[in-house]
Each structure stands twice: as C-alpha cells, then as structure tokens.
Design a protein around this nucleic acid. Structure first.
Lengths: 337, 337
DNA sequence: GGTTGTGATCGAAACGATTCAATTTCTGGG
DNA sequence: CCCAGAAATTGAATCGTTTCGATCACAACC
C-alpha cells in the first residue's frame, strides 16, 4: 500500500542504501542519482517512517514532558522555559498527560524507551515508577519531588522560604494576628508553606491566629467558604495568608460580600502568582513561584544528564519571590483588634 | 547494554516468541513459564522498546495534537475536549508545538508516520503541508481553516455569526454609534468578525462609527492604545466591539484611565471569553467560542476517519454564544451623543 | 495402543529504516 | 594506457519487536 524506501529504490533503479543516503543527506551522491531518487519518491508518494528510523538509529532527540494536566495554570509558563532550551539544543519536546491511570501516555513514555529523557511534573505518577525508570537508564528530571538517584534529579520550589517570605511581609507591616488558610492536609507543598509561616511567626514571638487550620481544598470556592467560617467565628485576624491564589481570590470575594475592605480592614497574601492575581481587585499580593526558570533549569539539567555527566546536585530548591500588589496594608491603630 | 526480549528468552530458557506472548498477554501461557519469564525479565531489568513494537504492529493508537503554542489561552480548554474523547476510545494524545521552523516536532509528526492521526491548531503549519500529508494517507482535522480533501477535515468557529451576535446585542440595547477595534489586517478571523459586525449594522440601517478601522494587534496594549486614539479623536461612540478579549481588557483599562465609566458611558463587548473576562471589572460581556466542543468534535471526526469511513461534511462551522456580563448597558437618553 | 484434538511453545519472517564494510566507477598523473 | 586513490554505490547485517504457521506435548476417547 504505502511506498517504502525499497519501492523507491526499485523505481529509481538504485539500491536501497543509495535511497537512504540521498534522502538523509548524510552521504554525497551524484546530482544525477539524487534527481532520480527524488523523482521516484515523489512519483510513489513516498513518506519516511520516522518510527523505523528511530528504531535503527537509537537517538531520537526527543524529550517527553509529562504533566498531570496539560491544561493546568502553570503548564503554560513551564513549557516555555523548557521549549526555549530544548530548541536551542535541537531537541524536540512532546507533551503528554499522566491522565488515564496505569496506561496513560505518560507512563508509556517512561516505560517504553520512547524518549531520550523525561521531565515529569505530575503528581499522578508514582514515585516508584520514576525511580524504576531512572534506574533502567532513562534520564529524568522530576518537578516538585525530593527524590534522586543515578539518572533522576529533582527540582522543587522552596515552599518553606515562600511561606516565610509572605508571613514576614505581613509581620513587617505590623500584623500580629495572622490566619493561615491551608490547601489540603496531604499536600507536602502546603505543609511546607505552613512551616515557613510558623517559623516567621515564631521568630517574632507570635503564634498563629487560630490553632485549627482551616482548609480550602486549594479551590476558589474552598477559599470562599474558609473566609465565611472565619467570619462566623467572629474573631477576625488582621491578615490572612492563603496557601494558594485560587483560594485567596475566593477569599477576596467572600470578604467583599461581607463588606470587609481589603486591604483597609484585612490584608491578604496568596501564593503562586497566577495570571489572575494581577487582575482581581484589589491586585493580589502573592508569592511567585519561578515556574519559567524551573522549566529552563529542568531542561538544562536533563541536557547535561543526556551528555553522560552525572549531575553533582541531586535536589534543587528554587527560591520564591514576593510580588507586591494592593491587597496588603500597614496596620494602623484603627484596625487593631 | 540494555536487555532485550532475546536476552530475557535466553535467561528464562524459552523462545523469543514465548517472551513476547507472555509479556503482551495476548496469548495464553502456562503459569509456570509466565513466572519464569517475568522473573527473568526482572532479573535483567528488561524494559520494552515501544518504538520497535509500534514499528511491527503498525497501529500505535496515537493522535498528534499540533499547536502553535502549547501555552496559548485556548489550548487548555481545547485539549480537554480532545483528551476526553480520546481516552474513552483508548487513544493516546501527544501534544507538540509547531514552533521551530521547518523541522518542528509538529512537522515531524505530519511527515513521518509517527501518529495514527493529527489535530492541527497551528497557523504556523503551511496549508500545503497539511494537504500533502493528508493525501499521503494521514487523517487530519485542521482547526480554523477552510480546506478539505480525502483525509482532511476542517473545523472553524463561525466568526461572522459571532461578530453579528455581539453587534446585534449592542443594537438591541439601543446603541447606534458603535466602533469596531480590529485585531490585525491579515487575520481572516478578524475580517469575518468585522463582516458580521457590518451586516448587523446594515440590517438596522446603521453604519460603523468610524470608517477607518483602528487596529489593536490583538494585544492588551494594542486595545489600550486604540481606545486612547479613539478618545483623542473626541467623537466617542456609545459602544465598542473589540475583536478579542485581550484588546477589550486593555480598552477597559484605558477607559478607566480616562474616567469614562463602563457601562454607564460606554458599553464594551469582547470576543473569545478568555478566563480573565470574568474577573476584570466590570465583567466583560463577550462572545464565547466553543473551544471545548471544538476539541471534542475534532477528536470524534478523527475517530470516524480512523475507522475508514470518509466523513460527509468536510468543513464544519461551530456557532458562537453570547456571554452576558456587566460591560454593556441599555442606552439611556442621557448618554445619547 | 493408536488416533484425534487442544493448548502451549517455537522458528522464522516481517516491519522500514540506518550503517558500514566491500565493491564498483571515476579521476588524474605518470 | 595503466594504476592508484578518491568518490559513489551496493549488500548485508541490524535495531527489538510482533505474528503466524508449524511443531510438540499431553490428555481423552474408542
């Protein structure tokens, strides 16, 4: 049905290897045969089979980017960082989702030698699988993990430092009653942010506004509900630190609904610096994760790993940055509670 | 270096085909040999080579999703529509960008039989290439184009209808002086939206507020500047229709800066319904493109095409939907200009 | 005990390219 | 005109699977 190189060879009256040489351009051929081959391939509608080529040459220059959700809020910046570096080094990137249980495309790439290396930003992928694939020789950079071995390097954001940063900022503005709205209980990220929060308070002889941590599921609605409960408990803090921006935005909505002015009555800090954070009103002060930088770094590490040198650092932690907008205010005597 | 099935066969003391049968699970084997094979493969750290498997079986159940920019504003919803359908039909999706000139991964997928089918949402890919690849037998669904042939189907949003819808809405609210802020001159989408705009006006005996079409490059800053020029010309319309949301949002910013109240003084409509449109203030009334639906439809069409039946419709047009928010208001006598 | 049937295992041929050593063709110098 | 050496071309092996017809083992049946 479909023409192969063999067919082209016959049609052009040359050998199979000459066709390969001509079409790949790796070996010099006479202008005359070149023309014959090209014409024959056009006549037959020949189309290269990249799969076969990859199988033989064993060097596909392809990086698999595996993510939970190709549609997530970070994905966009993250991949930009990767693409940039990959392109400069003539590597290709294919993105695939970890969605779909045990036989998602992501898993397939990890298990079936379909790529030269992988960058994994997917909590859905089991840690064992990563370790296993790496042990079998696939260079992997894992984002948001703390594991490493011979072919496996991790990159994570310093959530502790981020949490510390945000809290310190509020304290510097004079706040003493600060509430923390958590994401979920089983999230390490959340936990570390919380530890940073606690540390900053402790350093200034303060303690969290509430002992019980209210959780907002990392969702906008969750943030909304969390603030509503906070309000219902009557004992309002002067500042709230949300474990992510989505919740903070839900929180802002709830505060507006309760006629509580931000930042006059309450200061608010989020985490992540999602695009929306700039656009809500008031603009949300938040902690930016260096997502683009993470992508670029991940790709760079992978490249060195691909070149055979085993990296010295095995777990990288990237610092966060505080983004100041309009949702925080210096505490004035009138708002002291 | 790396163990192959052959090695496993030797280690387990069975034939190569038995290993294949065992591991693939397609053929029954004795529990005893199964155990022997599995253990041998673990001992040798065997890992399947998916490339070789694909080459032999010729049926990879992989769909290539080719986009200009994996980070674009639509991408997210679009891929959700695709994934959903693909997953239900046990197809895998890999996303790759058209970024990178002639030998981007996208082009590679189109030219080298690396996928069973492709969905292309990338203006960077030349039309010829699509037609050519389709002619060679690769089923393709192209988004935002108007081409078709044997294995090529196009899906596009009905920009004309969308433009009409938005304009009609403004007219129904009593507006007679409506300006159109264009995206770019060489965009077909833009042009069709403009035609819809004109048609709605014409049907009501109106003409555009300005003859000259101000262009805003489809960017937020462009929208900002466009409104500034509009204001500088002193002769303000009572409503503005922006060719996309980004520009509309820039426009809102400019209007706010000029102390012109939306929707009291001027009504504004955008196009696209990007996520941000909900969050700007006032909430942006806009025309929603059925992106998710487009993804799902694309995948469905591809599936039927993959099953061998050539589709009856070759170019699909999907209608837009008006999303009402707070940036439009019925024209009251006081705002008549 | 020989025949038949069934299920497990095996051998060998693909799949479609790349690659390298071997061979043929071409070139120019003596 | 012949020969050495370079350039172009060829043949054959290989990449790691899948697949299918052939073989083998074994139990059931008359």
């Amino acid at each position: 049905m479909l023409a192969t190189m063999k067919d082209v060879a016959k049609e052009a009256g040359v050998s199979l290897s000459t066709v390969s040489n001509t079409l790949s351009g790796n070996v010099r051929v006479t202008e005359d045969t070149r023309k014959r081959v090209v014409e024959a391939s056009q006549r037959l509608n020949y189309q290269k089979n990249g799969i076969a080529a990859d199988l033989k040459s064993k060097t596909m220059r392809t990086i698999a980017l595996i993510v939970d959700d190709l549609a997530g809020p970070f994905f966009s910046q993250f991949i930009q960082g990767i693409q940039r570096v990959a392109l400069d080094n003539r590597y290709d990137v294919v993105a695939c989702s970890a969605l779909g249980q045990k036989d998602s495309m992501g898993v397939k790439f990890l298990q079936e030698r379909r790529a030269s290396g992988a960058i994994v930003f997917a909590s859905d992928i089991a840690e064992d699988l990563l370790i296993d694939s790496a042990r079998r020789g696939l260079p992997i950079v894992a984002i948001d993990r703390m594991i490493s071995n011979d072919h496996l390097v991790s990159i994570a954001v310093d959530n502790f430092q981020g949490g510390y940063l945000a809290t310190k900022h509020l304290i510097d503005l004079g706040h003493k009653h600060i509430a923390y709205i958590a994401g979920s209980n089983d999230s390490v990220d959340d936990h570390e942010r919380f530890l940073g929060f606690q540390r900053a308070l402790a350093e200034h002889g303060l303690s969290p506004h509430f002992d019980l941590r209210i959780s907002g599921d990392f969702t906008e609605d969750g943030g909304y509900r969390a603030v509503k409960t906070l309000v219902a408990q009557k004992d309002l803090p002067t500042a709230i630190f949300f474990a992510n921006d989505e919740m903070a935005i839900g929180g802002l909505r709830a505060l507006a609904a309760e006629q509580i002015s931000v930042p006059n009555d309450i200061s608010v800090v989020g985490f992540d610096d999602i695009v929306l954070a700039r656009y809500v009103s008031p603009g949300l002060t938040t902690v930016r994760q260096p997502i683009y930088e993470m992508g670029a770094l991940a790709m760079n590490i992978l490249l060195t790993s691909l070149l055979g040198s085993s990296p010295k650092t095995t777990v990288h932690k990237l610092p966060c940055e505080l983004i100041l907008r309009d949702s925080c205010q210096r505490l004035t005597p009138s708002t002291l509670s």
